[in-house]
Design a protein around this nucleic acid. Structure first.
Length: 832
RNA sequence: GCCGAGGUGGCGGAAUGGCAGACGCAGCGGACUCAAAAUCCGCCGUGGGCGACCACGUGGGGGUUCGAGUCCCCCCCUCGGCACCA
């Protein structure tokens, strides 16, 4: 008979709630710990990824609470975004209604999992009391010039009907949410100047020692720093010039052409100065290139396309004239949108000149080798070497040439050394209804006017109807759009774009700390006490999205003076949990391999579900869902339940005092005492130091096996048995809180187990009576001896050499060397 | 191409340079049962031997070491990220 988790689990969930067991306040006398999970999008129901995320989080929170920490452990809902609008159309409802319903259901699910959140602190980002602060932050950034509006070619997703930030274009140039290939559109949009923080975002990665290496690497790649020189190139006979950027200024004598991006503003300027035929040719080509999708444009090794503009550029170092081409491999949004073409030392330029028959001038040779013959080159020589064909710089090794030529440019005012980043400013406008309204007003007279802070929030009109065609519902709200200009009082229009939902998730972890604060997004005291987050748990997919944005916001908030100037990072510890896989693939509706959380809880209980997911794999690795494995977890919990249930009588009357090792004579009892305390020791270390939750579970299974086979015979035996059961329940509690509370109560304890102190391993009991010493001959395992612990090297070797078995193994051969490792082994090296 | 993580039984996975495969799953054998389920006990890397035992074995190849899954070098494969970034 399985234990009755259907009665036990709700019973304890209610008890925790009634007693406010997990309510937490700032308390300076206790060490704080902020345990945070990436809050869910209320899509309708929790999935197995959530189960994993929150099982790890709840375990951590409960473990640290029992260890005396003041633990902040909140949850909320990231509740603006596209899916609510799509659902509204499909289900003929309103996004708010759909969202609320989903949140209610997910709260029930989270409670049924037994998560120990402080439920008073819940944040729902679609509520005006939250998103007004998104608007407030926007206004602060606007004041500081960190928010700005510009016309730019931006990423457009046709399916979502909105623009996207660079970070939200993933893989081969598709929308992060719906996989639609993204196209470029020229639009006026709002941006946040995250690039102002590029250097710091990169630099501080070195300080995030609690982050996994792969996330740090991903962010470094994404920010993409490179040092080089920006310089002017004159366009012969026009009085015009253009700027180029290069990291290889040492190769500047090797320029055989200059290439510009199709969208480069100079393109139309050059076109207008050309004859009619050329003008049309240039504009045509530029238009065709600009229209291609991100996928077409960025195909590596794809044939490069170019067009000679007919104009010539003057090489600043030697005055030589080279043709100016428009080339499709030049990106407008990196560097200056123009490059110096050095085919001898850049593979892309090399490919380009081979196609269009332009020249190659080698300006770097390998040390000790002559200058290569350009006609014989089959690829660009990108490696460092010695400068040649470079006038006064000939003979310099590449790093020196870069330094000298860079200095040469700066001295003459022809160029400037600077650092470029791949990171772009964050495009936050969304042509969507279900988001935070951007608090600006457009006035014909006054232009762009920010909504005054005292008028916040700019409420999202809830009477809007999401149009069937998926357009922006705000466009159908003239009463809302038409307003008065805060400056001149004349007629004006509201911005109808809303903010990227990633704004909401960039600072919600501050809001949890000061829920209900009406004067500020959060209270300084609260942030001072609780921040930074000590452990943040979530999926790796946010490595270059949310995790960069939240870092940026924290730095911005620090610069606003809302938190101390030296509080620059939000998350000191990061755990990226692995995916939950079934039958070799990620769980998805289309594959039909989804396991429903409610059904699992109904069939096995939350404790079993949690135990399985923590046991099946280490937290950061992917996890194979196995129905058999779940049954195994369930079997284990039933075993634990029976173990206690069958001995309740003895447990209740057993002496509560710990029996010291010295008082135990019986060998079996001594072994059990050791097992109990080595388990406590290992479980504690596995959770705290290694985050090896799977091995912690294994240790508890071993203890259970030990307790099952132990039969207490006397008072000491019973006291010891009780000690074993209590240690097991205490250790298992963060994993499977309900069953442990129940068994804790059954075995005669009145207190709430969740608030009971974590056990401490008895040092005496960790010592062993005998150790098993291994005999190796030439490194191969031969014999095994039981010996006294603590023998030193020489004594151990002496004793082992005296053993009959050892003599037999040596068999009269010459002993070359004897290596002894105390309490472990003796290795005898013999010859012949 | 660059960067990161990984490769261990039938499976999930364990192993501060020191007994490879803990713990669990599956499988096999047994007990209980009229029977089944549940539970309990035992076996469970490969090859050889009746046997105590012996040989081999952590993606492949070298190396360091008394001793290597673990450290070093080279290579292969899988997964993830970035990539026409000047």
């Amino acid at each position: 008979m399985a234990y009755d988790f259907r009665a036990i689990e709700p019973k304890w969930q209610e008890k925790w709630e009634e007693t406010g067991a997990f309510h937490v306040e700032a308390a300076s006398d206790k060490e704080k710990f902020y345990c945070l999970e990436m809050f869910p999008y209320p899509s309708g129901a929790l999935h197995m990824g959530h189960l994993r995320n929150y099982s790890i989080g709840d375990l951590t929170a409960r473990f640290l609470r029992m260890n005396g920490y003041n633990v902040m452990y909140p949850i909320g809902f990231d509740s603006f975004g596209m899916p609510a609008e799509n659902a509204a159309i499909k289900m003929k409802t309103h996004p708010a209604e759909w969202t609320r319903k989903n949140i209610d259901h997910m709260i029930k699910q989270l409670k049924s999992m037994g998560c120990s959140y402080d439920w008073r602190r819940t944040v729902k980002t679609f509520e005006p009391e939250y998103y007004r602060w998104n608007q407030w932050f926007f206004l602060q950034m606007l004041k500081k010039g960190l928010a700005y509006r510009k016309h730019a070619p931006v990423n457009w997703c046709e399916t979502c009907g909105t623009v996207l930030a660079n970070e939200q274009v993933i893989g081969d140039g598709v929308c992060w949410r719906c996989d639609t290939p993204v196209v470029k559109r020229g639009l006026d949009q709002w941006f946040l100047r995250i690039t102002d923080y590029a250097e710091e975002l990169l630099e501080y990665l070195d300080k995030l020692t609690g982050w996994p290496e792969r996330v740090l690497t991903m962010q470094r790649n994404w920010i993409g720093r490179s040092e080089g020189v920006r310089f002017d190139i004159e366009i012969a006979g026009t009085g015009l010039s253009l700027e180029a950027f290069t990291t290889r200024i040492d190769t500047i004598f090797g320029i055989t052409f200059v290439a510009i991006a199709a969208e480069h503003p100079i393109t139309s300027e050059l076109a207008s100065r050309s004859d009619e035929a050329k003008r049309v040719e240039i504009l045509d080509f530029a238009a065709r290139m600009a229209q291609r999708s991100a996928i077409e444009r960025t195909a590596v090794g794809g044939a490069k396309m170019g067009l000679d503009t007919g104009f010539k550029a003057k090489n600043p170092v030697n005055g030589e004239l080279v043709p100016i081409w428009i080339a499709d491999y030049i990106l407008m949004d990196y560097g200056t949108g123009a490059i110096m073409g050095v085919p001898a030392h850049d593979q892309r330029d090399f490919d380009f000149v081979r196609k269009y028959g332009l020249g190659v001038i080698p300006v770097v040779r390998r040390e000790g080798e002559p200058i290569p013959n350009p006609d014989e080159m089959t690829e660009a020589a990108e490696a460092d070497g010695i400068a040649c064909n470079s006038g006064e710089f000939d003979g310099l090794p590449t790093p020196v040439a870069i330094e000298r030529i860079g200095a040469w440019f700066e001295e003459r005012g022809l160029g400037k050394r600077e650092t470029q980043y791949r990171l772009r400013d964050w495009l936050i406008s969304r042509q969507r209804y279900w988001g935070t309204p951007i608090p600006v007003i457009y006035c014909d007279k006054c232009g762009i006017v920010p909504v005054p802070e005292e008028s916040l929030p700019v409420r999202l009109p809830l009477n809007a109807k999401v149009p069937e065609n998926g357009g922006n519902a705000l466009l159908g709200c003239p009463d809302w759009i038409n307003t008065v200009c805060p400056e001149c009082g004349g007629q004006a229009r509201r911005e109808t774009d809303t903010m990227d939902t990633f704004i909401c998730s960039s600072w919600y972890f501050f809001r949890y700390l000061s829920l209900g604060s009406g004067e500020a997004p959060f209270r300084r005291d609260d942030a001072d006490y609780w921040m930074p987050v000590d452990l943040y748990i979530g999926g790796i997919e946010h490595a270059c999205l949310h995790l960069i944005y939240a870092r940026f916001f924290t730095k911005m908030i620090s610069d606003l003076g809302l938190i101390p100037p030296d509080m620059r990072e939000p998350f000191t510890g990061l755990l990226t949990q692995g995916m939950v896989i079934k039958d070799g693939a990620k769980m998805s509706k289309s594959l039909g391999n989804v396991v429903d959380l409610d059904e699992i809880i109904k069939k096995y209980g939350a404790d079993t579900a949690r135990l399985f997911i923590l046991f099946a794999s280490p937290p950061d690795r992917s996890l194979d869902w196995s129905d058999k494995g779940v049954e195994g977890a369930s079997r284990f919990l039933n075993r634990v339940f029976r173990l206690v249930e069958d001995s309740v009588g003895g447990l209740k009357t057993a002496d509560r005092k710990r029996v010291p090792m010295s008082a135990i004579e019986n060998a079996e009892s001594r072994d059990l005492k050791r097992l109990i305390h080595s388990t406590v020791d290992r479980v504690t270390r596995d959770i705290k130091e290694e985050r090896q939750l799977n091995t912690a579970v294994a240790r508890m299974m071993e203890l259970t096996n030990g307790l099952v086979s132990y039969k207490p015979k006397d008072a000491i035996g019973w006291a010891l048995f009780r000690e074993g059961i209590e240690s097991l329940l205490l250790c298992l509690n963060p994993f499977c809180p309900h069953i442990c509370e129940e068994l804790w109560e059954m075995s005669g304890n009145g207190s709430i187990l969740a608030l009971t102190a974590w056990p401490k391993a008895d040092e005496d009991a960790l010592k062993v009576d005998k150790v098993s010493v291994v005999l190796q001959v030439n490194g191969k395992l031969r014999e095994q001896f039981e010996m006294d612990p603590g023998l030193d090297r020489d004594e151990l070797a002496r004793r082992v050499m005296r053993m009959e078995e050892t003599k037999r193994r040596i068999d009269g051969k010459e002993v070359v060397k004897v290596i002894a490792v105390p309490d472990k082994l003796v290795n005898i090296v013999i010859k012949g």
